[in-house]
Design a protein around this nucleic acid. Structure first.
Lengths: 150, 150
DNA sequence: GTATATTAAGATAAAATAGTCTTAATACCA
DNA sequence: TGGTATTAAGACTATTTTATCTTAATATAC
């Protein structure tokens, strides 16, 4: 798996938050219900996003979480790095310590090319764009009388 | 992590086997020593490659494992699929069941492009080519008085 | 202030992955 | 035939990841 489950949950939740135009706080319960993810587990994952300052949280009635900055200022990469760390950027595909230009593994060059594309996509694609795309996909789906994924 | 540790071990070992021009069987002990991988764990991993008919094994003195077909007929993908399954090919990057052209997730299209490149690389790159590349990297390294990775 | 709603944090459990150890099966060789 | 080398297989342990449950902290509203 490219992304851990925690990371996938974080992505799905933050895209869902971005897709709610609402400026106020959204409860994690609402998110977990809508995404079919365990409330407690999602809470933990979103806590990490809050620590990473991608989300703001607020306790008590009318509390919840919301994006800490505009959706187009939070990239796919921001979320991935907050949860899974920088493995995509720094780690060797064969897990070899010290792999790099000066000491490349047998897959280093071939993988570097692909990795760069992935990193670029993650850096360029942001929550606003993903949320917009999600809407598009869902409206397309509605026409074919199915439910779209997220 | 893109590849599981088992898969990484399988790749490193099969590339090492391919890089030994030797036509006979190579003991797993020799491989595990050279790669610094636990002998017993590597044994299990290579058993899976044997079951998948990428390797042939032979017991007893002068036994060991060897490639079941020429190194250029075993692809990166063959090894990955034998150990990690076809997640790279079939699974959604967000882990959503049923994600596909008819019911795409918010990342489906962007990811599809990258995934295709990865799959192509894995299908085109084979053990002979990887082993050759490994030699190249190592000779380059020897000049800079370091040890190359694998 | 007290009850309620909500996130934060910690303790525990379950499942998946990684790693070790022991025994079995098979093959060679003397 | 018996001893040794080797992979195969299974039992067991350890670690990491995922998931659940409980309690604490904080904010609101009445």
């Amino acid at each position: 798996m490219l992304l851990s489950k925690s990371c996938i949950y974080a992505l799905r939740a933050s895209v869902l938050i971005a897709s709610k135009k609402n400026d106020g706080f959204i409860t994690i319960r609402e998110l977990s219900d809508e995404l079919n993810i365990s409330f407690h587990f999602l809470t933990k994952v979103l806590q990490e996003l809050t620590k990473a300052e991608l989300l703001e949280s607020y306790k008590g009635p009318n509390g919840g979480v919301k994006l800490a900055r505009p959706a187009n200022k939070i990239t796919f990469m921001d979320v991935v790095e907050s949860i899974d760390g920088d493995y995509m950027i720094n780690e060797c595909v064969l897990g070899l310590p010290g792999c790099g230009v000066m000491k490349p593994c047998a897959l280093h060059d071939q993988w570097s090319v692909l990795k760069t594309d992935i990193i670029n996509m993650m850096n360029e694609y942001n929550l606003e764009a993903i949320a917009k795309n999600r809407e598009l996909q869902r409206s397309f789906e509605r026409k074919s009388a199915q439910f779209a994924n997220l």
